[in-house]
């Protein structure tokens, strides 16, 4: 009986959301008086023993070449096998694109109940109850898992990491790896950018910015802050910005530490995707804009005047630190 965490690799590196999942799984193991192990599939250029810093005691690694193409079918079988081989009864994923394709498949294979989008540690005082985000961030549900084996997929940025100096042992694990059913034709990475779903800080622009030629305000501020960029839905619909930047109820739901909204009115569908952000800043020239009701800090003013001054102030701050 132990906790197993699926640690996701992209381009040979461990994804940020996976560190959170590892640390979350370790906290559950601690709560249950057991150990946390990690399963890593595919080549990784990082030293996996450092997962010990996040509370993992053992890392199981398989580098079969078929794992170099992501095929949910193949991965799910490998992870289900690893769960059984390690007699784990709690399995953790991050609720990312990869996790969403895998956790439900593994759930079926292992007959293990799944709660996706978890935002807190399970409550084991009466059964096994996991709090998750529902209604696109507008509410939470507490969901009981009834099966013996349990799967949780953790929302990115929902669990704060506590690190230690421990180190994990790394072993190779042999698993049934089926031939891939998917041929990878090409990958198109928008490199350099901070992935939006995992970003600590997000700077977002709305229709109030008038046109794509003014986006320098958003991207300059984002670059200074090491932030990802986002936008409201109409901005993506009229192609001022790419679709993957669209946040909200029908776009990506995000929960960064800081969300800065510039020229966005704060429609209910937009708020649904961003209201789990820890601190919300709104810059809007209309004092009646609904976004102010959901914000922590606000400036009622013209973005074209205010944002350049903010950029200057951030430069000063960064220069003095």
């Amino acid at each position: 009986m132990s906790v197993l965490i699926f640690v996701d690799i992209a381009e040979g590196k461990i994804k940020k959301a996976s560190f959170e999942a590892a640390n979350y799984g370790a906290a559950i193991a601690n709560q249950m008086g057991t150990e946390a192990a990690a399963i890593v599939l595919g080549n990784c250029t990082e030293d996996l023993s450092m997962l010990g810093n996040y509370g993992i005691s053992k890392v199981f690694h398989n580098t079969d070449s078929a794992l170099n193409v992501f095929d949910a079918k193949v991965y799910a079988q490998a992870i289900a096998d690893a769960t059984e081989a390690t007699t784990s009864n709690i399995l953790i994923f991050s609720n990312t694109i990869t996790g969403k394709a895998l956790a439900p498949r593994v759930s079926v294979r292992l007959k293990a109940g799944l709660v996706s989008g978890a935002v807190a540690l399970p409550d084991t005082s009466n059964g096994f109850v996991v709090r998750k985000s529902v209604f696109s961030g507008k509410a939470f549900a507490s969901v009981a898992i009834q099966t013996d084996k349990k799967i949780i997929s953790l929302n990115p940025n929902a669990f704060s990491i506590t690190k230690s100096n421990n180190s994990a042992t790394v072993e190779t694990i042999s698993l049934t790896i089926q031939p891939s059913t998917i041929e990878l034709v090409s990958v198109n990475k928008i490199t350099g950018d901070v992935p939006l779903g995992e970003a600590d800080i997000v700077v977002s622009g709305g229709r109030g910015l008038k046109g794509p030629e003014n986006w320098g305000l958003v991207t300059d501020l984002a670059q200074l802050l090491g932030a990802a960029t986002a936008c409201s839905r109409p901005v993506a619909d009229i192609h001022w910005r790419p679709h993957h930047e669209h946040v909200g109820q029908t776009g990506l739901a995000i929960a960064p530490n800081l969300y800065i909204a510039i020229g966005i009115s704060g429609a209910i569908q937009h708020l649904a995707g961003v209201n789990r952000s820890k601190t919300i800043v709104v810059i809007n020239k209309d004092p009646e804009a609904p976004f102010f009701k959901a914000a922590d800090y606000g400036i009622v003013g013209d973005a074209f005047e205010v944002v350049p001054k903010i950029i200057e102030a951030v430069k000063k701050l960064k220069g003095s630190v």
């Binding site: 293990a112 109940g113 922590d296 009622v300």
Partner: peptide
């Protein structure tokens, strides 16, 4: 495999600082 025990709403924001 699962059942919903209860729902709750996020706490309201304290109010915006302008």
């Amino acid at each position: 495999y699962t059942s919903i025990v209860s729902f709750d709403l996020p706490p309201a924001k304290a109010g915006v600082k302008l």
